[in-house]
Computed example of a mutant assay.
Amino acid sequence: MKSEYKFGYVTIIGKPNVGKSTLMNRIIGQKISITSHRPQTTRHRILGIHTDDQKQIVFVDTPGIHSVAKKSNRRTINRVINKTAITSIDGVDVVCLMIPASGWTDADRHVLTALKGYKTPVVLVINKLDKLKSVNDLLPLISQSNELYPFAAIVPISALGRGSNDNVDHLLDVLTTHLPDAPPGFDEDQITDRSYRFLVSELVREQLFRRLGDELPYATAVEVTEFQLEDKRALINCDIWVEKDSHKAMVIGKKGEALKQIGTAARLNCERLLERKVFLELFVKVRSGWSDNARDLYSLGYDEGV
């Protein structure tokens, strides 16, 4: 490695469903954080590690920060998720605050207030550049943003990689200027701090978010109960937790069709991740009130040090 090699941590924050996980997956080149069109798909703090000849950037993908003033956000799981996101700002070298190209909303401004008191450089990332007819349409938003906060830089991007210039490479260059000179902190072939076991549970949960009704995915959790990784195959069992018998019926579906579709899609994604044949079994179990019970949340890995 060269003596001027850069290494550091970058936290990506923003309101729910603004594109944080999509951006990190794009940079890493592999699905590390699950995505869906639903807000708050991401529930955990997840590291994605980008390494090249000049730098190693450790991205911290976080759950969307939301206001706990709303009654629907006062459950224990929502408070834990919110705290996980906010405490992920501590100790990093740069913060990426992501907002949509459509402009600031009250939810975006709420996230911005979480940055007050921090001296860490903040780069404003304006996502969904591909939604605009012209880059010039961003000029009023950039001017407004400069008045709201002393951002270290403002970088418009398309996290999905749409358009002739998504600007993601430029974002990496900007972030690198704020990183200290240091050797890499992780092996060059490591792309996350999370285990395969965790990533599998997330891939199953992703399908719950993508295939179930509006509220039901938020009342579900996934726990891997068996994980055997062999040379050419993987044997995996997962429990899907729900809070009511009626939820269980909906996850399973008529003649088991919903659960079959969830399992098939999750299995295919697991095979891509593990690069081998996967035998996946899913079991749906009722545990009343798990999302508002600190002990249940801890057993599912939601403590996150908070």
Rank of each mutant, 00 (worst) to 15 (best):
M1W: 11
G8N: 01
Y9R: 13
T11M: 03
I12E: 00
I13C: 14
I13R: 05
G14K: 10
G14V: 05
N17D: 05
N17C: 00
M24E: 12
I28F: 02
K31N: 09
I32N: 03
S33F: 01
S33I: 05
T35N: 05
H37L: 09
H37T: 12
T42G: 04
R43P: 05
H44N: 14
R45P: 12
I46L: 13
H50G: 01
H50V: 06
D53I: 09
I57R: 04
V58M: 09
F59W: 04
V60F: 04
S72F: 11
I81K: 09
I81G: 03
K83Y: 08
T84D: 05
T87A: 09
G91H: 02
V94M: 01
I99Q: 04
I99H: 06
P100N: 11
P100C: 08
A101K: 06
G103W: 05
G103D: 08
T105M: 12
K116N: 12
K116E: 08
Y118M: 04
V123P: 03
V125F: 03
L129Y: 15
D130H: 04
D130A: 03
L132S: 01
V135S: 13
V135E: 13
P140V: 13
P140R: 07
P140S: 01
L141H: 08
I142T: 10
I142R: 09
N146V: 01
N146C: 11
L148H: 12
A152K: 14
V155H: 06
I157Y: 02
I157T: 06
S158C: 13
A159D: 09
A159R: 05
L160V: 03
L160Q: 14
G161T: 06
G163I: 13
D169S: 14
D169I: 11
H170S: 10
L172K: 11
L175V: 14
T176G: 02
H178M: 05
H178E: 02
L179T: 03
P183M: 04
P183N: 03
F186I: 03
R194L: 10
S195H: 09
S195M: 07
S195L: 10
R197Q: 15
R197K: 15
V200L: 04
V200I: 13
E202W: 02
E202P: 06
E202N: 08
V204C: 06
R205G: 02
E206R: 07
E206T: 10
E206K: 03
R211I: 03
L216M: 05
Y218F: 14
E223N: 15
V224A: 13
V224F: 13
E226G: 10
E230H: 13
K232M: 12
L235N: 14
C238D: 00
C238R: 01
I240H: 00
I240P: 00
S246P: 02
K248C: 04
M250Y: 07
M250S: 09
V251K: 01
A258D: 06
K260G: 10
Q261K: 15
I262C: 10
I262Y: 11
T264Q: 15
T264D: 11
R267K: 14
R267M: 06
L268E: 14
E271T: 08
L273H: 10
L274F: 11
E275G: 00
F279L: 10
L280H: 08
K285I: 06
V286M: 09
R287G: 11
G289D: 09
D292E: 14
A294N: 15
R295H: 15
D296E: 15
L297H: 02
G301Q: 11
Y302K: 06
E304N: 15
V306P: 00
